[in-house]
Amino acid sequence: SKDAAQYVYDEAQKGVTQVTVNGVTFKFDNWQKLLKYAQKLLN
């Protein structure tokens, strides 16, 4: 959902490398990768 994507995006902006959405945890090597993933979700 857009809300989940926005949440992931906001978390990535904080510099975190993992985020949990609806009980599913996504882990990334660095926050830039998390940010890229979030941007994909938002598009």
Rank of each mutant, 00 (worst) to 15 (best):
S1W: 15
S1I: 13
S1K: 09
S1F: 13
S1G: 12
K2R: 05
K2I: 13
K2Y: 03
K2W: 13
K2N: 12
K2Q: 14
D3I: 06
D3G: 02
D3L: 06
D3E: 03
D3F: 08
D3A: 02
D3Y: 02
A4F: 13
A4G: 03
A4V: 05
A4S: 09
A4K: 08
A4H: 09
A4Q: 10
A4I: 08
A4R: 01
A5F: 13
A5S: 10
A5T: 04
A5N: 09
A5P: 14
A5E: 06
A5I: 06
Q6S: 02
Q6V: 08
Q6R: 02
Q6N: 02
Q6E: 12
Q6L: 12
Y7M: 11
Y7D: 13
Y7L: 12
Y7H: 15
V8R: 04
V8S: 11
V8T: 10
V8K: 10
V8Q: 13
V8F: 10
V8E: 13
V8P: 14
Y9R: 03
Y9K: 01
Y9W: 14
Y9Q: 11
D10N: 08
D10F: 13
D10K: 03
D10Y: 07
E11S: 03
E11P: 10
E11R: 01
E11M: 10
E11N: 03
A12Q: 08
A12L: 12
A12E: 07
A12M: 11
A12Y: 06
A12I: 13
A12F: 13
A12V: 09
Q13T: 09
Q13V: 11
Q13E: 11
Q13R: 04
Q13H: 07
K14P: 10
K14C: 15
K14Y: 05
K14D: 11
K14R: 06
K14H: 11
K14A: 13
G15H: 12
G15V: 12
G15N: 08
V16R: 04
V16P: 12
V16L: 08
V16D: 02
V16S: 05
V16K: 04
V16W: 10
T17Q: 06
T17L: 14
T17N: 05
T17Y: 14
T17A: 06
T17S: 04
T17G: 05
T17I: 13
T17K: 02
T17W: 13
Q18D: 04
Q18L: 11
Q18A: 07
Q18N: 08
Q18H: 08
Q18Y: 09
V19P: 03
V19A: 07
V19E: 01
V19W: 11
V19K: 02
V19G: 05
V19Q: 04
V19N: 02
T20H: 12
T20L: 14
T20K: 04
T20W: 12
T20F: 08
V21Y: 02
V21K: 10
V21A: 08
V21E: 07
V21D: 08
V21M: 09
V21N: 07
V21S: 09
N22D: 06
N22E: 05
N22G: 07
N22V: 15
N22W: 15
N22S: 11
N22M: 15
G23A: 14
G23V: 15
G23E: 05
G23C: 14
G23P: 01
G23W: 13
V24I: 05
V24F: 09
V24S: 07
V24W: 13
V24R: 02
T25I: 10
T25N: 05
T25M: 11
T25V: 11
F26H: 09
F26D: 02
F26L: 13
F26I: 12
F26C: 15
K27I: 15
K27S: 15
K27E: 05
K27W: 14
K27C: 15
K27A: 15
F28Q: 03
F28V: 08
F28G: 01
F28K: 03
F28R: 01
F28N: 02
F28C: 15
D29E: 07
D29K: 07
D29M: 10
D29Q: 12
D29A: 10
D29I: 14
D29Y: 12
D29S: 12
N30V: 10
N30H: 09
N30P: 04
N30K: 04
N30M: 11
N30F: 15
N30W: 14
N30Q: 06
W31D: 00
W31H: 01
W31C: 09
W31N: 00
W31E: 01
W31Q: 00
W31Y: 06
Q32K: 09
Q32D: 08
Q32T: 05
Q32N: 06
Q32H: 10
K33P: 02
K33T: 10
K33Q: 09
K33S: 08
K33N: 11
K33E: 13
L34N: 00
L34I: 02
L34A: 01
L34Q: 00
L34D: 00
L34R: 00
L34K: 00
L35I: 05
L35P: 00
L35Q: 01
L35N: 00
K36F: 05
K36C: 13
K36I: 09
K36W: 11
K36G: 07
Y37T: 05
Y37V: 04
Y37L: 13
Y37R: 02
Y37W: 11
Y37S: 01
Y37Q: 02
Y37I: 05
Y37E: 02
Y37C: 12
A38L: 15
A38T: 03
A38F: 13
A38E: 00
A38P: 01
A38G: 01
A38Q: 00
Q39H: 03
Q39Y: 11
Q39W: 13
Q39D: 02
Q39V: 06
Q39R: 03
Q39G: 03
K40Y: 07
K40G: 04
K40V: 03
K40P: 01
K40D: 06
K40S: 08
L41K: 01
L41H: 01
L41T: 00
L41F: 04
L41A: 01
L41Y: 02
L41W: 04
L41I: 04
L42I: 04
L42F: 07
L42W: 07
L42C: 14
L42Q: 01
N43M: 11
N43G: 03
N43E: 13
N43P: 01
